[in-house]
Design a binder for these strands. Sequence first.
RNA 1: GCGCCCGUAGCUCAGUUGGAUAGAGCAUCUGCCUUCUAAGCAGGUUGUCGCGCGUUCGAUUCGCGCCGGGCGCACCA
Length: 528
Amino acid sequence: MLAKLDVSAVCEKVEIAGAGFLNFRLRAAVLAETLAAAARGEHLFFEQAAPPRTVVIDFSSPNVAKPMHVGHIRSTGIGDALQRTLRLLGHRVISDNHIGDWGTQFGKLLLGWKQILDRPALERDAIGELERLYKVINAECDANPAQLEEAKSELVKLQAGDAENIAIWKEMICLSQIQFDTIYSRLGVKFDQALGESFYNPWLGEVVNDLLQRGIARESEGAVGVFSDGSLPPKEDPFLVNRDGEWVADPALVRKSDGGFNYTTTDLATIDYRLKTWSPDEIVYVVDDRQSGHFKKLFATFARWKADDAKKVKLVHVGFGKIMGDDGKPFKTRSGDTVKLGDLLDEAEERAFKIVSEKNAELPEAQRREIARVIGLGAVKYADILPNRQSDYIFSWDKMLALQGNTAPYLQYAYARIKSIFRKAELPAGHQPPAAVNLQAPEELALARHLLNFGLTLEAVADELRPNYLCNYLFELAGKFTSFYENCPVLKAEDAATRQSRLALCDLTARVLCQGLNTLGIQVVEQM
RNA sequence: GCGCCCGUAGCUCAGUUGGAUAGAGCAUCUGCCUUCUAAGCAGGUUGUCGCGCGUUCGAUUCGCGCCGGGCGCACCA
């Protein structure tokens, strides 16, 4: 292999190193020229994908009439990082927020609205009031069958298009939309589409009829479900479950015995719509791992329903684990309630503000507020993306804001230090990047080599749908930069050429840090 | 019961698809601020990669079997 290999243009002599290893040494001149080209703005160490793919990403998916809570940050944060990564690499992305705006909960909500709505409370805090309606009526339904019947009949009226119920339902959606807009604008998350469950209503009946006609679904106990077709061994068959040693049917229900539809039905109609509308190569669902069984059934059902279409698209469930409190149980407030996303972000900003004020009391308050906003939000997002997504992680304010170790503030700090160098450098307007980058010190070389890996890392994130790879890359980059920073004076470098070269290295590092963090949905600050 | 996920340093976690001496942060110990932000850096200490068998030149990574934890298993989504 060595005899046939010709990489002399980019590498020094290639050496055999033990059993099955070849050692390649990148030519210093190639490294320097790659950096010089980047300094001239010709690239930033990554390339556009060829050919680009079309990818639908389904994430966040909050419910109408409920507060967005801590359970939504993983789907929202991971999904947003993925859409940003794919876009950066030149793929065509359609991000779609599949909002829970339809379903059985509206029976209870409508009943609550009619029986116990507190208008002034609704105007003060719409989501709080809607939440209260649901909780009260839900409790009453558990205790009182007559009330449950009432709720069901409100739902039937809604589904039948009753004008009054439709109007109330629309108002609830409007009120919820205000909340969603507020949260997403704080998070800086944008969607191309927000086609909620209700959007697919017109097709649900057809979906079920078609499945019945093709013999994929059948009736059972008054409901309609998709059952095993026996094509797989029982262990691998998503439509079978073992109970006490017997393999029994575990169907995907598509119509309830009362005639209502299930979420599998909506999801089937959704896949069909997305294929017809955007012809994607891939549809990615960023949803809690606990729903993996649902997605297995959904994908298997779709493959049986539309075999030709199914061959053209890759359906992927990007699952993730739970967020735990430091007691190892699901993360809750001290009083045992779910943590609301808005409150979580408020607290992150407050904690960051305290720290910024301690470290940098001399900055004006407005600037400290803005720094705290970026740092606090970044800390929460980063802590959420950093762990391998399928494992649960323990939520810790101290850890994410500790600002040492693998955290967003550490990365933002590295960026701020670079910007500080440029403020002190007092470069003339229209400063040109150096003609040559000259790398000598081991810290310079290590930093330069690591910059080259940015593109490979982005591609790994896109291929495996794991944004945590980018977190680890950036953490290493910041680490290599600070080593360089400690050991290699920039402004007081021994000669002008070294100074120019090191300035270029600093600038490229800042650009990659900024681009990388932005790709994770995190901003940077010039000073902190 | 069956399926899925997890088990890596005292703690919290990485480990880019089977590669070389398994890495970070916290904790702990030792140095470094009249010099570009010390929210930092340099270095020391810390491991039966849950256990066993197998496949392989080579296994934390793949297969099988155990042990321990979490989650899911028909009309909620």
